[in-house]
């Protein structure tokens, strides 16, 4: 079922990570992602893995739940691995038919897979422990310097949070319209690409109409509740840094330093430095 999509879903709990300021988590995630590209050797990644493992443990989100959200990217992961395996030139390990696998290929495939997995895992920790609203608040705040160059920061974050609210509703609606059209003999599953694309019209037209109707209703409802953009607005849940957030920033700095330092050392295994 479409409603089962779990990527980026919030997992309710009351851990240290959950309580961190969303700005810390946002900047922390950015720092973590950057750290993945700082080291060339495996040891650097080991530090990243260790760091992530501690975060996962602290977040109290069951590891199984996090991995469930990764299912959707398995395909992407496989493609990355295969491409790197096949198209990296270097010292041949095995060669059959027209395919050559090299030591460099294996290394690259392994590193890329690791990088990608850590990247997704790292960012899902953020989305799993932060309510979408909190997250958009954080973004609004982190991006607020951009207001000076007339970026509509408040509007962007409002749009994001509305989108997040309506995605499940629209998914459910898609499911319903699809079923209704199947009941009218529509076929979404067989035929060539063009036929299939054409078959989507009876699904997409009603879906767009519905989305526009909802947008219209919502705009009206927001206006009726005195919404007039970011001006004059107060916040129900204003962001406030606490002591733990300062500590978290400190840990982040130490972590980045550790990755940079440790990442300079490679371990020679199998005729190659990992």
């Amino acid at each position: 079922m479409l409603r089962d999509i779990t990527l980026g879903q919030y997992y309710q709990s009351d851990s240290v990570i959950h309580r961190l300021d969303p700005r810390v988590k946002l900047l922390g995630t950015v720092a973590f992602v950057v750290s993945l590209f700082l080291s060339d050797y495996f040891l650097g990644y080991l530090v990243a893995i260790l760091f992530l493992a501690i975060c996962v443990e602290l977040s109290t989100v069951p590891f199984k739940f996090i991995v469930k959200g990764m299912k959707t990217i398995v395909f992407l992961l496989i493609i990355t691995v295969v491409c790197n395996l096949l198209f990296t030139t270097g010292t041949t390990v095995v060669s059959f038919w027209k395919v050559t696998i090299t030591v460099e290929g294996i290394r690259m495939a392994f590193m890329m897979a690791l990088r990608l997995s850590l990247l997704i895992l790292g960012s899902s920790i953020m989305t799993l422990t932060t309510t979408p609203n909190n997250l958009t608040d954080g973004m609004e705040s982190v991006m607020s310097p951009l207001k000076k160059i007339r970026v509509p920061v408040h509007e962007i974050s409002m749009m994001m949070s509305i989108a997040l609210r309506f995605i499940p509703i629209l998914l459910e609606e898609t499911d319903k319209i699809m079923k209704a059209q199947i009941a009218r003999g529509a076929d979404f599953e067989t035929g060539g690409l063009i036929k299939r694309a054409k078959a989507l019209i009876p699904l997409l037209v009603p879906l767009f109409i519905s989305a526009f109707r909802r947008a219209n209703d919502l705009a009206l409802a927001m206006e009726a509740r005195c919404y007039r953009g970011g001006e004059h607005r107060t916040k129900m849940k204003p962001l406030k840094y606490r002591k733990r957030d300062g500590i978290a920033y400190g840990i982040l700095v130490i972590y980045i330093a550790a990755v940079i330092i440790v990442g300079k050392f490679g371990i020679p295994v199998g005729g190659f430095v990992w």
């Binding site: 997040l164 209703d217 919502l218 409802a221 107060t234």
Partner: peptide, 23 residues
């Protein structure tokens, strides 16, 4: 089509937020 917040309490707070009511 009239609930803006993703959590019940946040939605209820939306109107007062717009009116500039203190936190």
């Amino acid at each position: 089509n009239q609930i803006i917040g993703q959590v019940v309490e946040e939605d209820v707070g939306f109107g007062p937020e717009n009116m500039g009511v203190p936190t």
